[in-house]
Design a protein around this nucleic acid. Structure first.
Lengths: 163, 163
DNA sequence: TCATCTCGTCAACCTGGTTGTCTAAAGAGT
DNA sequence: ACTCTTTAGACAACCAGGTTGACGAGATGA
């Protein structure tokens, strides 16, 4: 009645998800340990987009492929945490110009370092060559994904179960 | 000011996520086209757990690592869709015994097939050997992940942007 | 028999997203 | 210069999926 539980196709998906989770959860944890509590990948993505030129909420929404309202919410928390600053736009009174603060850049740098360390760990486990291969394969498979860092929910919280 | 945007470590994470998304979104889309609208991986995971013996909501929650309340909610929608049936447990009046219906098994089978087709597509793209390698590498890296299919949010909806 | 555990459910709440509506400001076309 | 249309940002209502806390009903062990 249970039939074959083996599902190579779906397992592959699960593997991918698992890999992502491991990386992200570890990174979030590590970041917290280094004093950047409550920073999640989403925030990093958003800051990066802002730094890369998305200097207002609507534009940020567009780049992140979420609604401007959702982007505004993110900006709000980023501002509360002191990672971005919001000021009037001298050229357009409708806009509020966004800027990543020094603290924001700091977090981005640390986050980068943490992720790189994690990647190094993986490199040690399966070998540099193999890891590069994995990355390039994935890249061909996924294609030029438009970053798509709209990752609602669980990316954000969870890691509580850091078993 | 933008500093180096290159982030191999984080990019790796994004790649993993991207792969997962591509797979899951495609599968959900395909499933919908085959007539199974509104079925999401989460549901598949849950049904599988039920079929595998999690025959009551609390147990399902345990297996899926979510609260029994959350599991109960999932069961509710599964029941509404006709994928699982709920009846009294003759041995324990507190319990409501869960059972995957014929339709439920059908969906699981189709889902399995869809995922396998997707995997085949990938196989054609990078070669069977390479794909197997990728899977085994991922498996070592991820470790024996306890399925962990608690994937709130976006896994569920989104695919609207099936660009 | 009584204390304790477990099941299902209800209710309140959180997060992160959505749409819709609204104002104010910018821009385009006449 | 004056409209018409678009856009930014804010607010509200809502949704999905998850959480905790409480509680009654039934199971269970001392």
């Amino acid at each position: 009645m249970i039939s074959s539980i083996a599902r190579s196709g779906a397992d592959l998906a699960l593997l991918l998800l698992g890999g992502f989770r491991v990386l992200v959860d570890d990174a979030t944890l590590e970041l917290a340990e280094r004093g950047y509590v409550d920073v999640r990948p989403v925030h990093d993505f958003a800051m990066r987009a802002i730094a890369a030129g998305a200097d207002n909420a609507s534009e940020l929404g567009r780049r992140l492929s979420v609604s401007k309202q959702a982007a505004a919410k993110t900006v709000t928390v980023l501002e509360e945490r002191g990672y971005v600053a919001r000021g009037p736009d001298p050229l357009d009174a409708r806009r509020k110009r966004l800027q990543v603060t020094a603290l924001g850049f700091e977090v981005m740098q640390v986050g980068e370092a943490v992720f790189d360390e994690l990647r190094d760990k993986w490199k040690r486990q399966i070998g540099a060559k193999q890891l590069e291969r994995l990355e390039s394969d994935l890249a061909t498979l996924v294609g030029v994904s438009p970053v798509r860092c709209d990752t609602p929910g669980w990316i954000a919280h969870s890691l509580d179960e850091a078993t």
